[in-house]
Design a protein around this nucleic acid. Sequence first.
DNA 1: ACAAAAGTGTTCGTCTTACACCCATGC
DNA 2: GCATGGGTGTAAGACGAACACTTTTGT
Lengths: 299, 299
Amino acid sequence: MAKRHDAVRTELVAVVVAVAEGAPRVLTTSGYPLQLPAGPLRDSHRSMQAGLRAWVEDQTGLRLGYVEQLYTFADRDRARDGSERMISVSYLALAWPTDVDVERWVSWYDLFPWEDQRGYGAAVATLVPHLRAWAGEEDTERREVRCRVTFALDGRDWLPELALQRYEVLYEAGLVRESPDWRGVLGPEVTGPWMLHDHRRIVATGIGRLRAKIQYRPVVFELMPPEFTLGQLQACVEAIAGQHVHKQNFRRIVEQQRLVEETGGTSSETGGRPARLFRFRREILDERAAGGTKLPRSR
Amino acid sequence: MAKRHDAVRTELVAVVVAVAEGAPRVLTTSGYPLQLPAGPLRDSHRSMQAGLRAWVEDQTGLRLGYVEQLYTFADRDRARDGSERMISVSYLALAWPTDVDVERWVSWYDLFPWEDQRGYGAAVATLVPHLRAWAGEEDTERREVRCRVTFALDGRDWLPELALQRYEVLYEAGLVRESPDWRGVLGPEVTGPWMLHDHRRIVATGIGRLRAKIQYRPVVFELMPPEFTLGQLQACVEAIAGQHVHKQNFRRIVEQQRLVEETGGTSSETGGRPARLFRFRREILDERAAGGTKLPRSR
DNA sequence: ACAAAAGTGTTCGTCTTACACCCATGC
DNA sequence: GCATGGGTGTAAGACGAACACTTTTGT
């Protein structure tokens, strides 16, 4: 097969996120290792977004709503089989998981256990000594600073939106499984499972983007059902951020930004006093280009 | 020539920004119409960034410093000659213009006259009646809201980072020159000149990104010489934002974020009392992943 | 002396954070 | 009745916007 000069194949990759059962989840297709919905860009596709929607629907049956471009990867050493160069254009999509095979929705925190700061941060505690060791090896100064910032060592604040940077540190430190024959010291309950090609990095990119965006744009609502209680909304934000937020402040922010309106109904699902139901005021997407759901710090 | 199925060509496009003589400028290559440095991704390129740097240096002699990916374009109707589909991966680069042919650095505000809000906003005043007319034509409600938000009508705040959205509105309203034979009512002194393909849209994307980023990341300094006065720094921020900022508050923010340190020297360039010289504390790029140069509103 | 730009101190108001407390339901 | 989550008021404090004013140079 003659290899054409400078030829490329273009692949579309989707990070489809939904929140279910207390965890944000990404949609995978069947097969081992875990992989994201993806497929080549066809001449028949009107646009890359259209192609992406088609591939996701083909492979998972899910019709996408909100979609935005994430990043385009093309490093030469990503070549998988020595043939043509591969360009991957990745997209972030938000959905809520309905009528979909639950098996395929993998929790963020199974993929990246250290990203969930709502418990006691056990994964990070396990990782830290290995990170310190890696930092001590060489280029010490810069490595230590990176670890301190990304993993909130020495009393720093944990910044949820640094998911990609954390993954990169772990990758460089060799603490993350990157091939089927990888043999590291730590098990997958701490480092997470292997994924196809660089799909895991792509997911980390998506997590970082979503966590950053949720702070200044009202995108959470793309992950919510049409009606919801403020408690559910808060739980959704906390799941994505991997952090607890302050209840009263959260509610005040949502209110005063006039992001939601009452439906009149109530819900009495999770014990305790029944909660009022709200719906997203879609109008404000037009009214205001800025403004989102800020995260007040700590609980 | 047989057309291969699903074949694509990949092009790298650079929006190189520098601030000189009171205006932010983009680097163009010679030729008419105006065009950005660009070239195909080669097998020999290690990565797209490396390829981009090579093309820019080839075509303009400039060695790039700071570079980040902007957006990837691939709509089928962008096809230029009916042959293979073209994918364009665009990048934003920041530089300061030294040893470079000044002719090639085109002011943002020649390309997008309405984006400069530091004067009396004459361009916007001219555009508004045409925008209102366009909104009245059809889909009135949505169009009016878009105009109000993007162009700050009816007493709204002007948001500098909506540069792309403004361009899109003008494009849809047919107020912007998009081909050599375009004949609109308004002259280029208000609507700006035509650029090759969708290069003008790509510049607008870059402007929006830079204006947004400057508010939460210390990227201004990539546009400054090694030593500068606070006045110069402020002028640079104002040039990019297209807005004046409050002097004292600007200085306080820069100080308290410890973004700069004194060099000890002073500069007495622009009349008046000589100003102290500062340099960027590059360390903070590591120290803090967050925090940038906030823009206090108005003068 | 005056223009022009650098540089400082202080007030005012809003937005953030935090604490304390009451309410309505199920078991 | 008490556990559980829903829901509210208000005070302390951080931060941004704005104003007024002083300092140091060139002409």
